[in-house]
Design a protein around this nucleic acid. Structure first.
Lengths: 346, 346
DNA sequence: CCGCGCTGTGTAATCGTTTACAGTATCGGC
DNA sequence: GCCGATACTGTAAACGATTACACAGCGCGG
């Protein structure tokens, strides 16, 4: 800095009052007499004073910041949630710190340290793969009221969670396909060990059974929410001797990879095979064919989580249990009735 | 917090030394004798001490944080850059603050205030639409050595910029199309007033002229880097009495919207019309057809900007002028020689 | 044996706020 | 004219780190 920034002392001197008064004007204006107040405000303007956050934070024992732990910043799914979170904290003067857990080493200490460090007041965790010890550490220091999980969670931990109704989404997907006439339905899962993978797979399998659809073991294909995994699944499907007529993908990105792969192998979507995704990312509407999918309102999820955390920080109370957020089937062009005169399997 | 966190005093007491010594062990271990050092380290372990960032920041007059101003967190283009930035700051103990300038009010004060507030030490700006006054304010307080622009910039301001060679990218795109035999080339621009819009449009127009290609005014279509604007452009193109045979889009997202729109209107890509994008986002490889595009290495751009800023903060010197970062033509399936027996214009 | 330099440690000031507590007017009621 | 309440404002002590400066002990050359 070329010239040292003005401090509260400079303002006090300039306004001929004590620093206490200046501070009061800033934080409890009603406690100081009107004439003084305006004098101080003028002095603030004159000096260009801005409160020093570090000093305030030290004094108040807080950080004025929250941390968002996100598995992979680069994925559109997460980034739109982030946008919601950012929006949710807009106007709150909390700073939003973001940490990409895939690109930054995250140990059991990361979260607790940030609290102890006085770096953050709260956290939103989008990563269900967090080491369990990290949560134990948080609880040990009483931070469990200041952490909310979003979209994902850690099984068996009693932290507040805000997440979509994944099982119902899977149900809706299967029901939609079945209503179109499909009985041979495959599924491309998320990565093993992921809570969403489990919820969606189970929802899918349950509904498929309920509707007495065929179920072959190789119709459950392992994926990892990525384009590439969808593309790879396409190869497997193309090579099957008995192909499914519809595929429910655990994420839109997977569906895109899958469709691209099927297309390269000569299968048309939805003419030869129907594909349904999960998430409804922005692209889905403009893919060719436009993707039928299960919509999660990510912007809203992010905003909601931010609101929840803000409230928790202000009241000092833990957010209550949140009901699963409803998801919605969006029918577009990638699903259609099965082709009865299929080129290979009539 | 259930139990108050240990302070440097607790450690000092536990190790039977002064706080000065503890502090030295933390920051200049070589200045304290070996036996003392281990005693202190043991005490730190015993007490579970973590340094209080707020206190340290206050004393050292810094924030240990950087701010990233991003136009729209939700767009995959930006989020991948963010991932690179996050990676670039990994292991540095700088916190990375992110602000979505579309969803948060950004005034002329925002940036300067964050500096004055002692909230940030530096900033990476991805938004060329920043009010000019914001920069003036930064310069006035000597912060111009701690701001780097990334991808975009503000025309006429002498802040360090790291950006792709946009003009060359546009040239390469046009050259590629021309080499395939196209002479009727259209362009969908970015939003008016954007520096990238200008650079790419000019690069495109210049090269088109150099290659003596046709140039109709209505072949330059206004867009805004969004899917929707591509989709809208498709309607315009479908309605033209003389259609271009190839379209250079200012962003991959635009290209996707365009292709979807053309497809809906009955035109096939690349059979009836070629489309080339800009950016090479992850999706592009898996779109149908796979998108020919100009690749910007966003992860690397982000990392690079982070490194630049870190160096500037550590040395206290402004980052030097950075040469434009080369871009690369990636040929995929959305471009092909023009169809000589076009359904409408033979 | 003195004085110097070196090494290692402690003392205390400092960073810029907030706020408990104390102090001073002013006013009304008696 | 005195007392108490009320309404402001000031004094000074935190918050938890870093570091200039002082000081103690030791070894060594003269």
């Amino acid at each position: 800095m070329i010239q040292k920034a003005a401090t509260i002392h400079d303002v006090a001197r300039s306004a001929n009052v004590s620093t206490a008064t200046v501070s009061r004007v800033l934080t409890h204006p009603e406690r100081v007499a009107e004439p003084t107040r305006t004098m101080v405000r003028d002095a603030i303007r004159r000096t260009g004073y801005r409160v020093n956050q570090a000093a305030r934070n030290l004094r108040l024992q807080r950080a004025n910041a929250v941390l968002v732990l996100v598995p992979n910043l680069g994925k559109p799914f997460y980034s739109e949630i982030l946008a919601g979170i950012s929006e949710g904290f807009s106007g709150s003067d909390y700073a939003v710190l973001i940490l990409d857990t895939e690109r930054n080493p995250v140990t059991e200490r990361t979260l607790a340290d940030n609290f102890l460090n006085n770096r953050i007041d709260g956290a939103i965790v989008l990563d269900g793969g967090l080491p369990r010890a990290a949560l134990t550490a948080c609880r040990a220091m009483g931070a469990q009221t200041r952490v909310v999980f979003l979209c994902e969670w850690v099984e068996g931990e009693r932290f507040p969670v805000l997440a979509s109704d994944n099982a119902d989404g899977a149900r809706q997907a299967v029901r939609h396909l079945n209503a179109l006439g499909h009985t041979k339905i495959a599924h491309i899962t998320g990565p093993e060990g992921n809570v969403l993978t489990a919820a969606r797979r189970e929802g899918m399998v349950t509904e498929r059974t309920r509707l007495s659809c065929a179920a072959r073991a190789d119709w459950i294909l392992r994926g990892d929410f990525s384009l590439k995994s969808g593309h790879e699944a396409a190869q497997k499907i193309l090579a099957m001797d008995e192909r499914p007529t519809a595929v429910f993908c655990s994420a839109d990105m997977v569906a895109f990879g899958l469709i691209a792969g099927l297309h390269a192998g000569g299968l048309r979507v939805p003419d030869d095979i129907s594909v349904i995704g999960f998430d409804d990312i922005e692209m889905s509407e403009f893919y060719v064919p436009a993707l039928t999918t299960i919509r999660q309102d990510r912007l809203r999820l992010g905003r909601r989580a931010a609101t929840l955390l803000r409230a928790a920080l202000e009241n000092g109370t833990a957010p209550g249990d949140e009901p699963p957020v409803p998801v919605e089937l969006v029918v577009r062009a990638s699903t259609a009735p099965p082709n009865t005169r299929s080129p290979r399997h009539g």
